[in-house]
């Protein structure tokens, strides 16, 4: 395949950026999107150009490091991560626009790499449980009803990639935050911090400068793990419950 790529290039956080156009040839349909970019970077390095910086780690769809807006879609046209997107989703001769996640809480570091540490700080605010260390407890000691276990697992699938923020017209982190809160709040292990978790994590989310939710549903459409939109409503319910119970 021969492709025209229009890629966002930006030297550093303070420099202005712009789209640059590149041609790549000899792309196989079986390559992943990141392997296609590797091919471009090899060529750029050979001619002495600065390679395009982009985030990646596991390349198997589980770490949440890869992050590109491809033709206006976070992680491109399929419901998967960019590393698991294959070039067979494109046609020979296509022009592909590649941009970084856009949100003021995710400032661009270089080219397509953005700083997502705001997500880490939301997790630090309450995305954990208090558990005694030592040997693992007997698995059957704490019964979890099946529907609760399913609900927790559905939300535990979130890999924290930030596609929800990138897709949201308000740069909102509600889907991410709701996935993390719902995952722990429904389980008995998460019960001791049930109220403080939701209040603190939502508070941190607000202070990081993410936008609010206007229920456009873009986040859930973009999510490579299929975290559903009603997760946000479930978090709102937890938040309202905690506001009634906890007096600060």
């Amino acid at each position: 395949m021969k492709l025209t790529l229009r890629v966002w290039r930006q030297k550093n956080a303070d420099a202005p950026g712009a789209m640059s156009t590149y041609e790549v040839d000899g792309i196989s349909q079986d390559m992943s999107f990141l392997e296609m970019l590797d091919t471009l970077n090899e060529e750029l390095i050979l001619v002495g150009d600065d390679p395009v910086a982009f985030d990646h780690d596991c390349r198997e769809g589980i770490c949440g490091a890869c992050s590109l807006v491809i033709n206006g879609d976070a992680h491109g046209p399929e419901r998967t991560t960019t590393c698991q997107l294959h070039m067979r989703s494109f046609q020979d001769g296509d022009t592909i626009d590649i941009e970084p996640w856009r949100a003021s809480a995710f400032p661009v570091v270089k080219d397509l790499v953005v700083d997502r540490s705001a997500f880490d700080r939301i997790i630090q605010a309450g995305g954990y449980i208090s558990a005694p260390t030592g040997t693992a407890p007997e698995a059957h000691a704490t019964p979890v009803p099946k529907p609760d276990a399913d609900f927790a697992f559905e939300h535990a699938e979130c890999i924290g990639c930030g596609a929800c923020v990138a897709a949201c017209p308000n740069g909102s982190a509600m889907l991410f935050t709701s996935a993390k809160i719902n995952h722990l709040n429904v389980l008995p292990q998460g019960a001791p911090e049930r109220e403080t978790r939701v209040l603190d994590m939502v508070g941190q989310m607000d202070s990081e400068g993410f936008g609010g939710c206007t229920l456009t549903g873009e986040c859930a459409t973009a999510c490579p793990k299929g975290i559903p939109l009603p997760s946000i409503s479930a978090m709102n319910k937890e938040w309202l419950r905690a506001t009634r119970k906890v007096h600060r």
Partner: peptide, 28 residues
């Protein structure tokens, strides 16, 4: 106030734009 926050949270638009969300949602 919420609209101000939302607009501030997404200062730069994507170059590749796509029409999204329903008409009712976009016209709130």
């Amino acid at each position: 106030q919420l609209s101000r926050r939302d607009i501030k949270a997404r200062p730069s638009k994507y170059v590749h734009k796509k029409p999204r969300a329903s008409y009712a949602t976009r016209t709130m």
